[in-house]
């Protein structure tokens, strides 16, 4: 997994906007999406979000990937809704879907994970009095990314071993050894964290 996550590096206004403000903007947009019930304003919202992609200079290839994923979903939902609710309902539904998902993706594409982490840490600071340790957020992110890398390696080995034993289609032959090693890794990691003074 890419430790940068889904972030698409860039220098646009949207990239430079603080993560907290962007998140508030996204919340406002999501509210609008749920309140609006007619195609025209929802369509305008979709266009606005699309302009956001242009503004952020998201590479065409990346936009294409997202559009394809969205299209599959939209076609599926559209056909179902058309059948169940009629044409207008289906159109409204799909416009909502496009606006909400595209905006959420735009946030993710233009915001570094580390910026979100610091924003979250800042946001949690008032909770310090009730025992929350905001500085642990960054640690949790790093630890989990690292653990995904380790477990992916283990999962690959376990799958090979299952194949070697002719059990490549068995969920148990994959999941049980993977879990046993996962838990063992957790115990070792717990010791290592203690040894490193966490």
């Amino acid at each position: 997994m890419n430790p940068l996550g889904l972030y698409q590096p860039g220098t646009s206004v949207l990239h430079r906007l603080p993560a907290g403000w962007k998140f508030l903007g996204l919340l406002a947009l999501a509210t609008a999406v749920f309140v609006l019930r007619t195609p025209a304003p929802l369509g305008a919202l979709c266009v606005a979000v699309a302009l956001g992609y242009v503004l952020a200079r998201i590479p065409a290839r990346r936009c294409g990937q997202l559009a394809r994923a969205l299209l599959v979903l939209v076609v599926f939902v559209f056909l179902l809704q058309w059948w169940l609710l009629g044409l207008t309902g289906a159109v409204v539904m799909c416009l909502r879907l496009v606006a909400a998902l595209a905006a959420a993706n735009l946030f993710t594409l233009t915001t570094r994970v580390s910026d979100v982490v610091s924003a979250v840490e800042r946001g949690l600071r008032p909770l310090r009095r009730v025992g929350v340790r905001p500085e642990r957020v960054g640690l949790l992110v790093g630890l989990t990314v690292q653990a995904v890398a380790v477990l992916s390696g283990i999962a690959g080995e376990v799958r090979e071993a299952a194949k070697a034993r002719g059990a490549s289609r068995s969920v148990t032959a994959f999941a049980v050894p993977l879990l046993v090693r996962t838990l063992r890794h957790a115990d070792e990691l717990g010791e290592a964290l203690a040894a490193r003074g966490e």
């Binding site: 653990a147 996962t182 957790a186 964290l193 966490e198």
Partner: peptide, 13 residues
């Protein structure tokens, strides 16, 4: 840290 490690590693799982 044992609890923390289990939580993290299972999320990764």
């Amino acid at each position: 840290t044992a609890d923390l490690a289990r939580i993290v590693v299972f999320a990764a799982f």
